[in-house]
Design a protein around this nucleic acid. Structure first.
Length: 270
DNA sequence: CCCTCGCCCTGCTGGC
DNA sequence: TGCCAGCAGGGCGAGG
């Protein structure tokens, strides 16, 4: 499941193959993911030179010398395949550069998206306009969280998934960050103490940074046909570990919040 | 505004 | 062996 660290790793990997490259061919094998692709996608990208790539929340941005920026979201199962030997089912969009790089956007569950947005208006693009601060930036600090959570009665777990409060956190890293900060996920958002917020902010930053570092070490794999990402799974302390032991001696349990699985340890998260 | 819930999509897993 | 329910979940819209 691609979350912020996986998108960051993907963007860095794609940059190695796209930055400074001219796109000479754009193939659309299926015209939609969550939404239809922009009608002008092929025309807008063909012949364009990629100037840089970047990330905002869980979105990847491909900047070109044209007026619009291509923005992709990997949804649940999206990934870019680098130099594929053969195209596979779900390779919905394929880019080819002048020097022969081939990149295929594959998304089996089709929860992802591709958009073209006027480069001068990125900040006002609806999906970006209301986003909260990037979790790895200085704008995410205890004071910001205290303001954003004040008076809120939803569980802290649910609120941390709200992209307007922090941009880019997903289910896995919220579970992991709350565990590191020793905060129970069902705690009412507005009642999380200042001391707990003081633990939560570095917990969020460290779990994301460590995951990016783990993924970053696999960037070279982008030269391989499978393009698989190096996920942080081996380092998850609670996510997907229902019934297993926590480092504190407790047992990891699971329950559902807002329709999503929450993993936590009742012994060390208070 | 806040909160909750259901929908979208398809591959995989587990139960029978 | 086959079938089917359940699960994964980010973003978004509906309804209270």
């Amino acid at each position: 499941m691609p979350e912020l660290p996986e998108v960051e790793t993907t963007v860095r990997g794609l940059a190695l193959h796209l930055e400074g490259e001219r796109i000479v061919r754009v193939a659309v094998n299926r015209p939609d993911l969550r939404r239809p692709f922009p009608p002008s996608l092929v025309q807008s990208l063909t012949g364009a030179t990629v100037t840089s790539l970047s990330r905002r929340a869980k979105y990847g941005l491909i900047h070109t010398d044209r007026d619009s920026t291509m923005i992709f979201h990997l949804g649940m199962s999206g990934r870019w395949r680098i130099q594929p030997d053969v195209l596979e089912k779900h390779d919905h969009l394929v880019l080819e550069t002048a020097s022969g790089h081939v990149l295929a956007l594959n998304d089996a569950r089709r929860f992802g998206s591709v958009d073209l947005v006027d480069s001068a208006d990125l900040d006002s693009w609806p999906a970006f306009a209301a986003l909260g601060p990037e979790p790895l930036g200085e704008e995410l600090n205890p004071a910001h969280l205290a303001r954003a959570l004040a008076g809120r009665i939803s569980p802290i777990k649910v609120l941390l998934l709200d992209q307007r409060i922090v941009a880019g956190l997903g289910n896995i890293y919220v579970c992991e960050a709350l565990h590191r900060a020793q905060i129970r996920p069902d705690r009412t958002g507005g009642t999380v103490s200042r001391a707990a917020l003081g633990r939560l902010v570095p917990a969020i930053k460290s779990v994301l940074a460590e995951s990016i570092a783990a993924g970053g070490s696999t960037i070279r794999d982008y030269a391989q046909p499978n393009g698989e990402l190096g996920y942080f799974a081996a380092s998850w302390r609670v996510y997907g570990r229902e019934g297993e032991s926590c480092a504190c001696g407790g047992t990891v349990s699971r329950f559902v919040q807002g329709g999503r699985s929450t993993f936590w340890c009742a012994k060390c998260q208070k």
